[in-house]
Design a protein around this nucleic acid. Structure first.
Lengths: 205, 205
DNA sequence: AGCAGACTGGACTAATCGGTCCAGTAGGAG
DNA sequence: CTCCTACTGGACCGATTAGTCCAGTCTGCT
């Protein structure tokens, strides 16, 4: 039913800007209020676009949701990449922790993770769920690369599975953000990430 | 706006049964499809009740949502209480881990945590958010009690803050469930909980 | 039995939803 | 300048939404 007609790609600079404006507004609204309770009309109002513009670039609302996932993925991964680049020591991992906590604090712990907060609403729909799974896999890949650099640098001969380690760290981050969002405090996030760092330290020793 | 008129309490056995049927159906639907995309009509159809019945017991949909949170809280805490009762050793904690993983496996990792999956949609609404925060606090209390029993039993003189430990463990559980729901595999949950158990073991030593 | 009030069924409404359609504008290529 | 087409504005549609209302039925109490 959804996506049967491929979304039109913009062919001019103006069209590209319009499409981007729509996706950005949709991403903000959906992160704040959830996917289902973000109406197409609200997205239009926030992006100052008209209905025909939205349906010119997206087959339907589901198609827009996929674009939002895509956009949030690129945003999160870009931020993570810059925070994890050159990660070669536990001290670096602790700086990453502090940066993540600071990011959460800046938004008063609202919204949670731009990707994680989409999961519960979209996990029963095959396409969005697959997209989110791939996004998390890419995120883990960054962590794995960092852990590998840490292990190489330290000359450790630990044979721990770095992918498993990355999954556990990502889970701690997501759970920490979820509890932080609920309690409106960065404390659960800090505790979860500290636990994750302890785990990395002991497993990479 | 919401809850200005207190929800009527049922005064007969029949009324009590009707209200319970409505809440149960709403809880199931909201867990599966999300809060916003569960319509009142769908709840009515699933519970074989009529509109006047629902609005006899609930002021509005928001009020019904609060009742759903309440119900899910009692369900989760009852299950956790029975799994955590008599927790006095690491071996017992591992049995708890296995039971939680098994529960997730039984549902094909769908739905996630009955409480956690509500967070992202409700965290911006004051009353539901406060309810969820209290529910998590009660959950942590069970964990704290278990950790205390473990520490007393083992004669450990660790001075670690048991509340912080419980928060970290709960975060691992929530994050593990979120990733499990996304990847449709219990593996992230297992890894997150193993990490949490390692943390308990090392902090309680 | 009979009464009061709790409970129920479902028609109804106004607003909002996602989505369609078409007439009109703008902007790059020749 | 001219034409083609990408792009835009917004009226419009049927379906669905949360919520109201009232007439009728059941139930516990005396």
């Amino acid at each position: 039913m959804a996506g049967s007609i491929a979304a039109e790609r913009p062919r001019t600079a103006r069209g590209t800007a319009t499409k981007a404006r729509i996706v950005e507004a949709a991403a903000d609204l959906m992160r704040a209020h959830g996917v289902a309770s973000t109406s197409v009309d609200a997205v239009l109002a926030a992006s100052k676009a008209s209905k025909s513009q939205l349906y010119h670039y997206f087959a339907d609302k589901d198609d827009l949701v996929l674009a939002v996932i895509q956009r949030q993925t690129e945003c999160v991964l870009a931020a993570q990449e810059s925070m994890l680049r050159g990660l070669t020591s536990l001290a670096g991992l602790r700086r990453w922790r502090d940066a993540v906590v600071e990011l959460s604090r800046e938004s008063q712990c609202a919204g949670g993770c731009p990707l994680g907060s989409l999961v519960s609403e979209l996990a029963e729909s095959p396409k969005p769920r697959a997209q989110l799974a791939e996004s998390f896999a890419r995120w883990e890949a960054y962590l794995i690369a960092g852990f590998k650099a840490m292990r190489d640098r330290s000359g450790s001969k630990s044979s721990v599975d770095l992918a498993d380690l990355a999954t556990a760290v990502l889970a701690a981050l997501q759970g920490g953000l979820l509890l932080a969002q609920t309690t409106r405090s960065t404390r659960p996030l800090e505790l979860a990430l500290d636990m994750a760092i302890d785990q990395v330290a002991s497993r990479l020793k």
